[in-house]
């Protein structure tokens, strides 16, 4: 069996979290080197704070100060920290009940070595040098009782926190798609016919109408017909081309389902439904196992295809 193709997929965004009244006060407190807990109707003090009382379901309104020192309730040890974790050297994770609180907070403990970690150990907050209203204003916890005093109030209440989320994946194709991509790297468009409905798909895939893999290989032309299109005039996040540009559905000769692609090389307002187009390939030296080998499509100058020839593909 042919090996599948795989490539990295990275996603990243700095999420902006609006906090609301309870978490906003909690984060404002952290910025000012204070830890606030929320008091529920049963008198218990929760750190991290609860926004709603789990018993009465009412919004929690009362927040009270707790101590920057506390006791480890449970712990584990990390020899090889992962990207984004509080410390980049071996550290302990711990559930820590701060003095004055009834519940425990999860955070990192900079204990140096596993041997120093134990249930019941006393720890204190090590504050970040640049607090701004974020759970990471607590850089980590450290063994012992001494903690820095609260700072002067640092200004406006915190209402939003920013959280970067970066994840790395490996994206894997099917063997059929891999074969299509390898052909593409040779400048050829490979389709496959569904054994049940006999329709030709580019790229090859499991036939979405019949739920079986397409099998029989069919060469597909790089010429086709624009079935429909839109002119993109709007800029948006993640965009790769400067507007305006035309994105069209193109029914390649020999295929039974249109593919989306760009029509470039003529003014956007001259693109028409039924227009005949052909693929424009990048320089051969740039070809890889990627659909980007085809830069865009360009009109061939042939007469337009009659509407009846593509109306069932709209």
């Amino acid at each position: 069996m042919e090996t599948v193709l795989a490539a990295p997929l990275e996603i990243g965004f700095d999420y902006t979290r609006s906090l609301g009244p309870v978490l906003g006060r909690f984060m404002t407190g952290l910025r000012d080197r204070r830890v606030l807990g929320s008091r529920t109707a049963d008198g218990r003090i929760h750190v991290p704070p609860l926004e709603y009382d789990p018993v009465t379901h009412a919004p929690v309104t009362e927040l009270v100060d707790v101590q920057p020192t506390g006791t480890v309730v449970s712990w584990t040890w990390t020899d090889r920290p992962l990207d984004g974790q509080p410390l980049d050297r071996p550290f302990g994770w711990a559930l820590i009940r701060l003095d004055g609180a009834d519940t425990a907070l999860l955070h990192a403990v900079d204990a140096g070595s596993r041997d120093r970690m134990h249930t019941g150990m006393r720890v204190h907050i090590r504050w970040s040098s640049s607090p701004h209203g974020h759970i990471r204003d607590i850089e980590c916890f450290a063994p012992g009782e001494t903690a820095a005093a609260p700072a002067e109030s640092g200004g406006d209440p915190v209402t939003i926190m920013t959280t970067p989320i970066r994840l790395a994946y490996t994206h894997t194709t099917s063997p059929e798609e891999g074969r299509y991509l390898r052909e593409l790297a040779e400048g050829r468009l490979l389709g496959q016919r569904c054994p049940v409905c006999r329709k030709v798909y580019v790229p090859p895939r499991v036939c979405p109408a019949d739920g079986v893999p397409t099998e029989e290989e069919v060469a597909v032309s790089e010429h086709g017909t624009v079935t429909t299109f839109c002119v993109v005039n709007v800029p948006f996040a993640g965009q790769r081309l400067e507007p305006p540009y035309v994105v069209a559905q193109i029914l390649l000769d020999g295929a039974d389902m249109p593919i989306p692609h760009l029509i470039l090389g003529l003014p956007a307002d001259e693109v028409r439904m039924g227009m005949r187009v052909a693929a424009v390939w990048r320089d051969r030296a740039e070809w890889t196992t990627s659909p980007t080998n085809i830069a865009h499509f360009l009109p061939t100058g042939e007469p337009d295809a009659p509407y009846e020839s593509y109306e069932d593909h709209l």
């Binding site: 999420y15 979290r17 906090l19 978490l23 909690f26 984060m27 991290p48 584990t76 990390t78 992962l82 990207d83 984004g84 974790q85 509080p86 994770w93 907070l105 999860l106 955070h107 990192a108 974020h134 759970i135 990471r136 926190m161 959280t163």
Partner: peptide, 14 residues
Amino acid sequence: PYVTAPLWPDSVSV
């Protein structure tokens, strides 16, 4: 996502 996930505690540690 406010008080815990920004520290990236992995599922095995939890």
